[in-house]
Amino acid sequence: MDGAHGGEKTKSRLCSICNQRRPALKRPKTLQQICRECFYVVFEEEIHSVIVNNKLFKPGERIAIGASGGKDSTVLAYVMSELNRRHNYGLDLFLLSVDEGITGYRDDSLETVKRNEIQYGLPLKVVSYKDLYGWTMDEIVKMIGLKNNCTFCGVFRRQALDRGAALLKVDKLVTGHNADDIAETVLLNILRGDIARLSRCTSIITGEDGPIPRCKPFKYTYEKEIFIKDLERIRPRAILDIIKSGEDFRIATSTKMPEQGTCQRCGYISSQKWCKACVLLEGLNRGLPKLGIGRTRGVNRKDDQHNDAKNIQSKPCGSLDF
């Protein structure tokens, strides 16, 4: 601990890049002490080179930015609009937000997203669970109680951005997953035993596999994040090392992802006949909310599901064309 230097000494030290201004932060990645202005420049140019080197976009593409109102997505919205302007990417950018329909929950973050809309001049599209699934989370909770609502929220959320992106007819969806997130995903897939996902979770475009499933029980997420933060404290480059490990793992190319088909009902990717969201919706719409929760596979096991087709239509489930 270099506690000896107090405030004065810091003020005399200068940014290690421009050598002019007072440093404001220490970059975990390089341990360089740099000023705010240089940080912006370096940070934005790094993102730019990632975009260019990985050929993430083509001119004229419609791109949705997943916007939650959180820190990462706010930064992403800023950087994307800034780089699009500065480097003439020629992209049509949108902000895409999902409203779960939980009273008093999204209000704050939707405010933030609306502010982003004005600040960066990006059109905002808010899709609600009501639009996508025909149910708000409040209605779901009313129906099934507090006990299992995580299952619903998690499954619905996983698809919401993709479905929203499809509604907007965009070519690509960008999300603010950062190095911490990817490192976390690498660890998570080791902990869960998911070798197939482990083999591609470090890839920058997750492509047809759909978004990385991320809704984990809160406590678990929390411990994992704390572990990552603890690691970062003793060794800042651990985060990047985890990603390097993820890239270097010797995984036979023959390791297959579970058979990936599409949901017969909504067209979303699904390994079963119906995707999980549709199974859950089916339960909700039939007044059997426990369907699809727990071990039984619900409707995917039954062959007589078509008899219930009429019931399905009793509530709209956000028909989407993919």
Partner: peptide
């Protein structure tokens, strides 16, 4: 983007299948 799991704050008392 902030964790897709934030919704769990909204009243999730059951936090893992492990439990």
């Amino acid at each position: 983007m902030a964790c897709n799991g934030t919704g769990c704050e909204s009243g999730c008392y059951k936090d893992s299948t492990g439990d």
